[in-house]
Design a protein around this nucleic acid. Structure first.
Length: 819
DNA sequence: AGCACGCCGACT
DNA sequence: GTCGGCGTGCTC
């Protein structure tokens, strides 16, 4: 047997159905190590694909083996632990190994090689080729450029034509036939920068990007990058994806992205460690801390739940534990739902840990984030404080992972692989024997359940740190209001309370429990509502450009004043914050009012909030974003306008989310010297969730909710696997869905599943059944997320994808999806 | 998924 | 006789 050096690779071009480690020959003299990215030929056509080296070793030299073309990294970007994590993610989230690895690495890394060559505009193909004919390398480059639609990445060009193409590029650029875009250098010292962010949800944006992936690859990359990083400086987005400013403008026009100006964030001044005052814990905190410390010292990868009411000082406990971890030579990761909302946390950590802490927050530029990643990888930092993706920070020798407000749904990724940070954290803790500390004022029902079952170690902080009493909560019954002739959004009770606050010159926050605000057009005569031609949804009216737009596929059309059906006059409808604002202005004429919602540019938020505090503006009206982290001395009244809105959402944790949200909002009142009040408006004042939130009684909420979950077979008693099947032919999709259901039902009756008696439900249409002309139906498997079930679903997915009957139909699986 | 190979019908 | 339709099968 002849042997050779062989590398096992995760290959980008291999879809889920055929994903496995592929063997490639390492050419003589090539340095290849585990964790580097390489370029390889793949498939019949030997198209170039990227791969990640999983293992290197001697192996049998089989005839079919192909060679690695080139190595893309100077040193490895992933180590053994990363690869183990990716292997685990693959079987847990039904993604390819390559997709998992890509999720682990920072976005900046995947784009750092981007250097794009483009054809100069208005170049005629035949003339240009004739012009380039003299040098074969030039002709080859031109041919490739035309074949790829006018622009090619430099790395791709190099692997196709060899290193010598660099000279050809120079010649061609000299002739003005092409140009190469290099680093778009940002001038140092810019005061503000032009930022881009998604104007739609990540899911909606990805749908749009996917639908035109082939036709507009640059757009696709730009949107995908935006989905991973949230917001980014415009020049950086262009640099990393090869998009032009025209591309961005087109995306803006299509309503996919929006621009805003942002002050350049200075690197937060790092105070020297040692200066910070030592942390003093009260009795309760001390008790929790001691218990947690001994768990951490055990090195058994334990998990604990710290249930502490708002203002009980969980952060102090976190910091003491991190300090002790460091003293023992261990490192720590601290996760928060959205760090930009917790500047106090950032301040505390930088004063306690100085240069040893790396912060990964949404205000960082992509390149800054990448730099932080490099610092962490070089083990220059010992503490990482960040949001969801910080769980992948390449920090080794972990002693502790903290997840603050662990119930937040932002801990679940919104794009595939849709990992949950808590699960990844558990895996990493198991790798290093670290303690996982889940902290919350309103824990998820699952976590509270496991704490009661003894799977997590429970700890409690029941006293508010400053001994402040919780706000007094009043319920306003909106049904009564309607009966007594008040058709408005503000109940008489809330109105009285606001008036009282106005007299006392104290401030009020009003909260509309609704995401964004969908405004649509409706014909006053015949009731016609303009709908998207490609999706099963009403079009949204955008006052900025006077157009109707679809949030799912990006379709946009001019808004007519007259109804196209009957000629009647079109009216704007939808209870958004604007509508409430109008009502407030009539109720309280001449009173100053601030509005903050999805329409408010994100750069403005902080400015608005500081104005609210500084100028003591009497009323702040807002959506989700006013619920969290705001701490204002003079706010003594909080009003929840429609507590029920988030309750009747078709999702198993709607009740939990509502309870948590109400608790957070109520906690906004009376943070200063004066005591606070809260008014919760509801149509169902008898509802357990509303009542327990009004009483600030978590245990009561938990008891009723866990009973419900048990009866309905919801988590933690079962896991919900959602198989989404989509395609352009609705009947074909439905047929495929029914076939899948029958197949899964058959399996459910067999060993080993029959013992746990899984249920297979559906097909049911997805919340929005048609998106961009693709119909989406779901099959639900209610069972246990164990090895056998995952293996079955993985097998079923692969079989489905390779079944000829299912051509043109795609499928994916999610487990316990929160949103 | 994406690409080549192969086996049939409409042309120069 | 050949160009191109898409059904079939494989990817180290």
């Amino acid at each position: 047997m002849e042997t050779a050096n062989i590398a096992k690779l995760a290959v980008a071009a291999a879809p889920y159905a055929i994903d496995k480690p592929y063997d490639y020959l390492i050419p003589e003299g090539m340095e290849v190590s585990v964790g580097v990215r390489v370029s390889v030929p793949f498939g019949r056509g030997n198209r170039r694909s990227e791969g990640v080296v999983l293992a290197v070793g001697e192996g049998e030299k089989l005839p079919g083996l192909k060679q690695i073309l080139s190595v893309l990294d100077r040193e490895s970007v992933l180590d053994r632990q990363d690869i183990d994590l990716a292997l685990w993610m693959r079987q847990r989230y039904f993604c390819t190994l390559y997709d998992a690895l890509k999720t682990i690495l920072p976005a900046g890394l995947w784009y750092q090689f981007r250097e794009v060559c483009r054809l100069a505009p208005g170049i005629d193909r035949t003339a240009a080729c004739a012009d380039a004919q003299e040098a074969p390398a030039c002709a080859e480059v031109m041919r490739l450029l035309f074949a790829k639609g006018g622009s090619v990445e430099l790395s791709e060009l190099k692997s196709a034509c060899g290193e010598e193409c660099v000279n050809a590029l120079k010649t061609l650029a000299g002739k003005g036939l092409i140009f190469c875009e290099s680093r778009a250098q940002r001038k140092i010292g810019d005061k503000t920068r032009r930022m881009v962010e998604l104007a739609l949800s990540a899911e909606e944006a990805m749908e749009i990007a996917e639908s035109r992936r082939r036709a507009a690859p640059v757009r696709y990359e730009a949107i995908r990058l935006l989905c991973t990083v949230g917001r980014i400086c415009a020049s950086e987005l262009c640099y990393f994806t090869g998009a032009s400013s025209q591309t961005l403008r087109a995306l803006e026009k299509a309503g996919v992205v929006r621009f805003f100006q942002e002050e350049t964030l200075r690197v937060p001044e790092i105070k020297q460690s040692g200066e910070a005052a030592p942390i003093v814990l009260n009795e309760e905190q001390e008790a929790a801390y001691c218990g947690l410390l001994s768990l951490m010292e055990s090195g058994r990868a334990e998990a604990a739940l710290l249930h502490g009411v708002t203002g009980s000082g969980k952060t102090q406990v976190y910091i003491r534990l991190v300090q002790e971890a460091l003293r023992r030579g261990k490192n720590a990761i601290v996760l928060v739902p959205e760090i930009i909302l917790t500047p106090q946390m950032m301040d505390k950590f930088s004063s306690c840990f100085g240069v040893e802490v790396a912060m990964l927050h949404s205000g960082l530029r992509l390149s800054e984030r990448y730099d932080q990643w490099k610092r962490i990888r070089r083990q220059e930092v010992r503490v990482v404080l960040g949001t969801r993706s910080a769980i992948f920070a390449p920090l080794r020798n972990l002693g502790l992972i903290v997840m603050d407000e662990e119930q937040e749904s932002s801990y679940q990724s919104e794009n595939p692989p849709r990992y949950h940070t808590r699960d990844v954290a558990k895996f990493r803790c198991a790798q290093d024997g670290a303690l996982l500390l889940l902290g919350s004022a309103t824990p998820s029902v699952e976590s509270a359940h496991w704490a009661r079952e003894g799977v997590y170690h429970p700890f409690f902080l029941r006293r508010r740190y400053n001994e402040k009493s919780l706000p007094r909560v009043m319920l306003a019954d909106l049904k009564d209001e309607v009966r007594s002739g008040n058709s408005g959004v503000i109940s008489s009770l809330l109105r009285r309370e606001i008036e009282q606050n106005l007299q006392r010159r104290e401030q009020s926050i009003l909260f509309l429990n609704r995401r964004g605000n969908s405004r649509m057009l409706l014909c006053g005569e015949c009731g016609f509502v303009p709908e998207c031609p490609r999706c099963s949804t009403a079009l949204t009216y955008h006052s900025a450009n006077g157009r109707l737009m679809c949030h799912y596929c990006g379709h946009s059309e001019k808004a007519n004043e007259a109804c196209p059906m009957c000629g009647g006059i079109m009216k704007r409808v939808g209870v958004g914050t604007q509508k409430v604002e109008e009502e407030l202005r009539t109720l309280f004429p001449g009173i100053q009012l601030l509005r903050m919602d999805a329409d408010t540019a994100s750069g403005e938020h902080e400015a608005l909030l500081s104005r609210f505090e500084r100028e003591k503006i009497p009323i702040l009206l807002g959506t989700q974003m006013v619920a969290k982290g705001l701490d204002f001395e003079n706010v003594t009244l909080v009003g929840v306008l429609a507590a029920d809105l988030s309750l009747y959402v078709d999702n198993y944790h709607a009740a939990e989310r509502t309870f948590s949200l109400l608790t957070q909002v109520v906690g906004r009142a009376g943070r200063g010297e004066k005591s606070g009040r809260a008014v919760i408006q509801t149509y169902t004042p008898g509802n357990e969730v509303i009542v327990s939130a009004a009483e600030q009684d978590y245990d009561r909420f938990f008891e009723s909710e866990i009973r419900m979950r048990r009866i309905r077979r919801y988590p933690p008693f079962a896991d919900l696997f959602t198989c989404t099947i989509s395609g352009t032919d609705e009947t074909a999709v439905l047929r495929a869905a029914v076939r899948l259901r029958e197949e899964l039902r058959l399996e459910a009756q067999k060993e080993p599943f029959c013992r746990s008696d899984p249920e297979v439900l559906g097909p049911a249409p997805a919340p929005v059944v048609k998106v961009d002309n693709r119909y989406r139906y779901r099959i639900l498997w209610v069972g246990k997320n164990d090895k056998d079930t995952r293996a079955l679903l993985s097998y079923t997915l692969k079989k489905f994808a390779s079944d000829r009957q299912n051509r043109g139909i795609s499928i994916f699986v999610d487990c316990n999806a929160l949103e």
